[in-house]
Design a protein around this nucleic acid. Structure first.
Lengths: 251, 251
DNA sequence: TCGATGGATTTGTACCAACGAATGGATGAT
DNA sequence: ATCATCCATTCGTTGGTACAAATCCATCGA
């Protein structure tokens, strides 16, 4: 007698979910093998795999041959978007990301590509560029403890930064924002847009994302004193590793 | 001759992904039926379903019997967490959410449950409650144009608001923050934490989420003049419908 | 002792078959 | 013309089988 209020695989998934959330399987624990679940619930292996696939898509577990199905653990690193605008301690030679990460006792590194291009419409409109105008982009892939961590692509109007240090390959130790200042276009106002979505394939590859990990997209547009956009920074942050924090004073 | 650099279902998924991103299938368009894809790629239906499942998990498409596989469209509504702290126009009778939504020409509504309980550890620690201390929670499920839109659970120290309007069922037209003010505990500082994850089952149910939709979790802790936490608001925002925006002045 | 090797285990991919559930659209009745 | 009904289509669920790929671990050899 079946009292199937929902699909079998849903029932199996619920049972596993409950067990995980209740702590029966803590982070790092291995769930029963597919064969074991098959017998325990009296269903086919297809059904078991469908159930576990749900948990994978929810980001709860990962699977690997022979290793089995493992409960994931997550440790997020705190981001303070506001602090990136503040001056770091005098003499601090590193830019915002490197500084923040090493503050938490972890080892930052990054890979930078610098190139000029006609940006996508979304970027162009935020930078208020004309049709076909060039932008200079600094594409960063950042690592923490050797693992890919996030990406940060910063776009500048080419006209503005073409001849400056920003257009040169490699690190700018004191930070691009400092260079903008020196060019007379310090950012006095920024607008941050934050949303989330599932990653596309190239993001999965670049950031070595596991299945079921959404990404937070974080776009900052910086404006100078004359309200001209001088920088558009697009960050793609794997959701399981990032926590964004803002502190606001009520004025 | 097979040049299978990756799994068959991955190849089919890539092909579909490419077609969607290139605009061959715009929002609302129906992908070929499973049977059609099966024939076109010469694979089994299971393999086709695996491929399409990938797109579903990426939030690119939805499936329904007889309707087929449809390319999703997304329209996000802008949130301004800062504005919720500002006074709304004098005489404006609605609270922040209702005001913001109707500003965009859409129809807000909500359902509120008010209850007292011993909150989960995460909430308790943010509210700096002792062990077993009660909190008052106002649980909101918000709708836009009749569709579930997001949830917002606001926790207050019971000690603080037990006898006030906050503890009564139903709407507080002028907003709970106003009541806090009147109680002498106006929020002068807030800390916003933002992250993302895949939704759990109860969230999928309450918010009628489609598969492959991550949620943004947005936690605001408000402190009064003596730096006591007086409110913890936990919002769960379906990622495809929300865009969070902050505007910061560089001081 | 330490490294290479191979077997066993566990998930990954792929195919086939059958029936259920939902619904768009055609058909027929009023 | 309008509404109810029925059918065909399309996805949803579940069962089965077979072999591939990855890797843990025990065993064997130097």
């Amino acid at each position: 007698m079946k009292v199937a209020r929902s699909a079998l695989y849903q029932q199996v998934a619920s049972e596993l979910r409950r067990a995980i959330y209740s702590g029966d399987y803590g982070p790092g624990a291995q769930l029963p093998t597919e064969e074991e679940l098959r017998q325990r619930h009296g269903v086919s292996r297809n059904t078991v795999r469908l159930a576990v696939a749900e948990l994978v898509n929810e980001g709860l577990v990962t699977r690997a041959p022979r290793r089995g199905t493992i409960v994931r653990e997550r440790r997020a690193l705190l981001m303070h978007p506001q602090r990136e605008l503040q001056r770091r301690p005098t003499g601090e030679p590193r830019e915002a990301f490197a500084y923040a990460v090493s503050q938490e006792g972890r080892a930052p590194s990054q890979h930078i590509d610098v190139l000029a291009l006609v940006p996508a419409e979304e970027i162009a409109s935020r930078l208020e560029l004309g049709d076909g105008d060039l932008a200079l982009v600094r594409r960063r892939l950042r690592f923490v403890d050797g693992q890919p961590y996030n990406t940060n692509d910063s776009y500048f109007p080419f006209e503005l930064v073409g001849g400056s240090e920003i257009a040169r390959q490699g690190d700018i130790k004191r930070g691009a924002n400092r260079v903008l200042e020196e060019l007379g276009h310090a950012q006095v106002r920024v607008v941050d847009d934050i949303w989330a979505r599932m990653p596309n394939q190239s993001e999965v590859d670049r950031l070595q994302l596991e299945l079921g990990t959404p990404v937070v997209v974080y776009v900052r547009v910086g404006y100078d004193r004359s309200d001209m956009p001088v920088r558009v920074a697009v960050s793609v942050l794997p959701a399981d590793k990032h926590l964004i924090r803002y502190e606001l004073d009520v004025s």
